[in-house]
Design a protein around this nucleic acid. Structure first.
Ligand SMILES: Nc1ncnc2c1ncn2[C@@H]1O[C@H](COP(=O)(O)OP(=O)(O)OP(=O)(O)O)[C@@H](O)[C@H]1O
Length: 727
DNA sequence: AGGCTTGGCTTTTTT
DNA sequence: AGCCAAGCCT
């Protein structure tokens, strides 16, 4: 029997309400996600079939976490509940129903970079110069239109006034056409195509409506028009649907998120009942008061009460710094202090920043100070060139009309097929109305390509053909390993004889082992199943709960998370709020909401740091402190003891560094892998028994050199290699 | 065909 | 400072 005792009466009411649509609007840390999780469990207990419940979250990680927690409440029944992001859930439906929207079920999913290069190709074939038509901004424009459910036809009818707009329209049309020809969809299509599917096929809509008897949505404030439309389609007016959100935490409008969805919900679901949660369980009174000071400067937010029973706690602390290095040093010093005086662990800390580029100074200093850290998000693993290239092979093998992926690998690794050859083949393909892939088998008819090069193309085609057969005979893992061997990718990178080259090898090996792992966990999985997973995967997804390090991440990726101690770095005008030439009052308000999100991640203590100057765009910029700090009532915060910032100002970097060094009692702050030292014996899944002969770096970047049995010496990244330490 | 240099532009944030 | 795309040279 589900125990609802750990929930307050407001929360319980929201959970037990099952007479119609419910909208839960509540501030940060009031238990929205917790309520949603319990509600899922409650519904199952009330007799709903687990596989008739659909829970939609903002990130994959949030979905995995919700699944874990539901499992704790109701056990293995939780496995059958549909939990995922809009993108992943609806793309699965699309694969089953592909025929109804004139697609093949093995369609590829294009990420932003793929879309970008498709736009470039479209511009080229429409003979539009990239000087006048910037591929990036056009891609963004098209995505914006799609996000707002403005089809090319609608765009043409209602929005075109100028000549360049007319061209955008033409690119838009051609872009969509190419996507279809490539049997590919971009992220936006994953939401738009289901709408098309449901609108044109009432029977299928009925099927899905019947299939799902209850829908729950987390982070509702960050859904876009298309997502909301899908919700309306999937549930009836008096439908069984619960949405939770906080308008003050809407931080994705740049991606099409539309706050008016919250307001419309009450209208569109007329019998909707609104619930409010007012007790915050996460933060101290000090932190909440500061957050409230800031957010109340946004006039348009929905009025909400938020109080807490938690202790007053320490005042929020400002850290004044001379520059970004100083900022990093001061933060690392506070972390060390907190660890020794307050018995904290590294994993209790998060350092948040507005832009990814701010992580660099922090990383440098943390590495030097031996503070184990991990970058969450950042340059994502799956966006690295060597990874994308390899995945492009898999995409082509799975869906050979995917021209973007084919173009990507045509000459990687180099096989003497240059741009001119490719252009000639494309001309041939268009003329004969066949795909580029088909052109490759008829390359001997493309007479303006030299014979030697025709042979290269032919060989490449033979290779691809072979793997298209192998894909049905080998597991995804085995096939990819064979492919990597045959392409000679590892030795290619080895020959680069550089740190980057070695990094690439590690990345490729990491990809291989993750594919292997996938194959082992899903023995029956086909290549397409793996690609479906990998195309919607992001770095933030990996679950690091058990590991002990400081987390470095953007405020955006910290949404929904909580940490005992939070540092918010770079609280300066132009950075937070971030500004550019397009800044408006609306964008500043969103920055303020982002600031609110950042603050409310903190449970016990928040530090706000700002620097007088920092490197930006390759030169020193003098910074003013953020207006958001000035919005905080002065009696709610204090400055870091002893005016460290001023002191640091007068000393050189070197002096500061040595001063820290001398004053520091010897404590190894690298709490993670503390026992991974030279000489220690370790066990590796693949390589077997070995001995550590070298350790470099800290945190995420930490690497060890291990001598395995049989004179087999390997460099491994701790982050990826699962080493067992043998005592 | 492919490698190297230059010049423009950039940093938002991510499914 | 660092990345990418375009252009130039071999
Ligand atoms: N009734 C309760 N009793 C004890 N702890 C609670 C209760 N409700 C929520 N919490 C705790 O409060 C914290 C915040 O909960 P949760 O993450 O669900 O809030 P949220 O409203 O989704 O937050 P946010 O919108 O900021 O992401 C969690 O640690 C959760 O376990």
């Amino acid at each position: 029997m589900l125990n609802l005792k750990s929930l307050n009466p407001q929360q319980r009411k929201a959970i037990e309400y099952d007479e119609g649509p419910a909208l839960i609007i509540a501030g940060a840390g009031s238990g929205k996600t917790r309520v949603l999780t319990y509600k899922v469990a409650y519904l199952v207990e009330q007799g709903y079939e687990p596989d008739s419940i659909l829970a939609l979250t903002f990130t994959r990680k949030a979905a995995l976490e919700m699944k874990e927690r539901t499992k704790k409440l109701i056990g293995s029944k939780a496995d059958q509940i549909w939990m995922g992001t809009f993108h992943s859930v609806f793309s699965r439906f699309l694969r089953s129903e592909a025929a109804h929207i004139n697609y093949e079920p093995n369609f590829s999913i294009y990420d932003t970079e793929d879309s970008h290069s498709l736009v470039s190709n479209v511009l080229e074939s429409l003979k539009l110069s990239p000087d006048n038509y910037n591929p990036g901004s056009i891609r963004h424009r098209i995505s914006y239109l799609k996000n707002h459910m403005i089809s090319p036809e609608k765009f043409k009818k209602n929005y075109i006034s100028t000549f360049p707009e007319q061209k955008v329209f033409e690119v838009y049309v051609e872009y969509q056409k190419r996507l279809r020809e490539n049997n590919s969809m971009d992220f936006d299509d994953l939401l738009l195509k289901p709408i098309e599917l449901f609108s044109n096929n009432p029977k299928i809509l009925t099927k899905y409506r019947k299939k799902f008897s209850y829908i729950l949505v987390d982070e509702f404030q960050d859904t876009n028009k298309a997502q909301y439309e899908l919700l309306k389609l999937m549930s009836s007016k008096d439908g069984k649907i619960t949405a939770v959100g906080d308008d003050a935490q809407s931080i994705y409008s740049w991606r099409g998120a539309d706050i008016t969805n919250i307001l419309n919900f009450e209208k569109d679901f007329s019998k909707c009942k609104v619930f409010r949660l007012e007790q915050n369980y996460r933060s101290t009174k000090s932190i909440l008061a500061v957050a409230d000071c800031v957010i109340k400067n946004n006039k348009d937010q929905i009025q909400k009460t938020l109080w807490t029973d938690n202790p007053q706690g320490e005042a929020v602390t400002l850290i004044k710094c001379s520059d970004e290095k100083d900022e990093a040093y001061q933060i690392s010093r506070v972390i060390k202090n907190e660890i020794t005086t307050n018995k904290r662990q590294l994993k209790d800390f998060a350092i948040l920043y507005r832009t990814n580029s701010q992580s660099r100074a922090l990383e440098d200093v943390f590495r030097r100070e031996k503070i184990a850290y991990a970058i969450i998000g950042g340059l994502e693993f799956y966006k690295r060139k060597e990874i994308k290239d390899l995945v492009a092979y898999l995409k082509v093998i799975n869906n050979n009309i995917d021209e973007e992926s084919l173009l990507r690998i045509m000459n990687f690794p180099q096989r003497g097929i240059g741009v001119t050859t490719i252009q000639r083949m494309i001309v041939f393909a268009r003329k004969h109305e066949i795909t580029l892939f088909e052109t490759m088998s008829r390359v001997f008819e493309v007479i303006d390509i030299k014979e030697r090069i025709q042979k290269n193309v032919k060989n490449f085609k033979v290779l691809l053909d072979k793997y298209m057969i192998l894909k049905d005979e080998l597991s995804v893992g085995e096939m990819t390993r064979a492919l990597v061997d045959e392409l000679g990718i590892i030795s290619l990178f080895k020959d680069e004889k550089s740190v980057e080259g070695r990094q690439k090898i590690e990345n490729v090996q990491e990809l291989l082992s993750s594919i292997m792992q996938f194959s082992n966990q899903n023995p029956k999985a086909a290549l397409g199943d793996y690609l479906q997973e990998v195309s919607l995967m992001t770095d933030t997804d990996s679950n690091n709960a058990e590991r002990n390090f400081v987390s470095l991440q953007t405020v955006h990726s910290a949404k929904g998370l909580e940490y005992p101690v939070v540092f918010l770095s770079g609280c300066e005008e132009d950075i937070f709020p971030l500004s550019n030439k397009f800044s408006t009052d609306a964008t500043v308000q969103e920055e303020r909401r982002l600031f609110y999100v950042a603050l409310t991640r903190a449970m016990e203590k928040a530090y706000l740091s700002h620097a007088r100057s920092r490197y930006r765009f390759g030169e020193v910029a003098y910074q003013n402190r953020s207006r958001f700090i000035d919005e905080i009532s002065p009696d709610l915060c204090c400055e870091l003891n002893g005016g460290l910032g001023k002191k640091a100002n007068r000393k050189s970097k070197k002096e500061i560094y040595y001063e820290y060094f001398e004053n520091m009692d010897y404590v190894d702050f690298n709490q993670e892998n503390i026992d991974l030292k030279v000489g220690v014996r370790v066990m590796h899944d693949k390589f077997g028994l070995g001995k550590v002969i070298h350790v470099v770096g800290a945190g995420e970047a930490q690497r060890v050199t291990v001598s395995f049995e049989g004179n087999n010496v390997k460099q491994l990244m701790i982050k990826y290699a699962k080493l067992k330490v043998l005592s």
